[in-house]
Design a protein around this nucleic acid. Sequence first.
DNA 1: ATTCATTGTGTAGTTTTATTACAAAATAAA
DNA 2: TTTATTTTGTAATAAAACTACACAATGAAT
Lengths: 277, 277
Amino acid sequence: MLSKIKAARSGLRKSEQKVADAVIEDPDEAVQSSIHAIATRAKVSEPTVIRFCRALDCVGFQQFKLKLAQDLARRGTFFYQDVTAQDTSKQLASKLLDGAIASLVQIRDQINEESLDRAIALYEACSRVELYGSGGSAVVAEDAQLKFFRLGKPAIAYSDPHIQHAAAALLDRDALVIAVSHSGRSSDILKTVEIARAARAKVISVTATRSPLAQCSDVALTVDVNEDSDIFSPVKSRLGQMVVLDVLAVGVAVRGGEHMLEQLARARRAIDFKFVQ
Amino acid sequence: MLSKIKAARSGLRKSEQKVADAVIEDPDEAVQSSIHAIATRAKVSEPTVIRFCRALDCVGFQQFKLKLAQDLARRGTFFYQDVTAQDTSKQLASKLLDGAIASLVQIRDQINEESLDRAIALYEACSRVELYGSGGSAVVAEDAQLKFFRLGKPAIAYSDPHIQHAAAALLDRDALVIAVSHSGRSSDILKTVEIARAARAKVISVTATRSPLAQCSDVALTVDVNEDSDIFSPVKSRLGQMVVLDVLAVGVAVRGGEHMLEQLARARRAIDFKFVQ
DNA sequence: ATTCATTGTGTAGTTTTATTACAAAATAAA
DNA sequence: TTTATTTTGTAATAAAACTACACAATGAAT
């Protein structure tokens, strides 16, 4: 709703724009105000405020306020907070989970559909997949390997930079590399990708926007997350990377049709077989 | 707010309870209704509706509606939806991310503070940590190893069940095991934990509520997630497990005071050093 | 069982808020 | 400059929210 106001602003009449500005300036105030209060603040007449609401596809002021309130509620649900030594365990957990949730919300709102489609196309065109990630990203690469090797083409993950170099040198034009790196600035992974591209392999990177790694890959699936806060290596971006790779794998699976879904179901049953009870 | 109404219901007067019931029965309708409409539906007078609002710590009906609306907005934000073959990539990604977010919200709302405190205490009392997880859970165990080994005590993750057995047999009463398993029913991990406990090591499990694994460990950090939908091995519970272990590690770090935080900062800088630019 | 006190509920009226109809002002076109 | 059109505000109306107060119900004490 707030973004809708911003988008619609230029298409509004002059005095309606004043209302838009007043609302944007302090939305929290706006949801608690009456028409009169908003009209006064925006220095316009009361009917203008109603016309403003109608221009935004609301039947009246009340509905506008309701929509705005819900928008604000969604927005402010999971906000990042620093943990302090005084927090109880419960508070600590809530804060960290809120942070993680907020970062996934951010990723959801930033999905680049085109990149995703191109990534799926690259997988469909390749004959095998190699996943490279070191340190924390190794975990993500391994997790993704588990998904991709069930999709029918060989998939393998390497976490040692030296082995990555060697493996990359042995790739060919039918190979697909998925390079995972939080910062996209680690010299190891950049070198590996350079080698892989020299061997004419295709490269999908899962990394930060506009990072060197993103720039030197065929498709970049970007995962940008506010990490200032993480005490350890970046958990939040790791979660995001895992989900993004899950999206890619599911995307491939869904486009693979019945046959592929059946194959996946079989793989799951084989694992469930090991459970007791 | 809705849960507040439910909680307050019994403490309300008879006719106010009628209002509560009317609101609970159809909250979405309620947020769009006037006092008159709600009063009619609940078969009470209009002032009763206002008194009902006041009983819930709202200054008036408008504020009540606003709060309720925001509550509903938060509630219905991320709901799980199955992916279909007709989805665009964008829809697919949104659905999967919503599902992941919903599961983290669920975990946040289910945190057991007492378990968390006891888990922190177990870490503080131990001299070394071993992390066991196989298959998908191996990834989680490895990720956690990265966190825990920075906290000052040796930490090692094993993903091969046979090696887990052997390692568990060599533990002593000062060792802490962190056992990760989605289902908590894999016979391998149960056997491993049995061996570890026979060696008098302490066991923290990260698994499903009331699973065999949860029942045979000293502390269970439970991660319950609706997985019906996952095409692959359970991504959502894996995310949840990672975050829960992050909470545990941060909890330990925060209680460790300045010294420990400084040590962690140093570890991060050592890694950042490798980046280009 | 009856009275009195207390609590709960509704009626009727008041105030505030939202909305409409219309007229004046501003803008653009002829 | 005139005319048509759009934009904006004024004033009136309708609707909604709220208040004051009176009546009803309940329960405790005689």
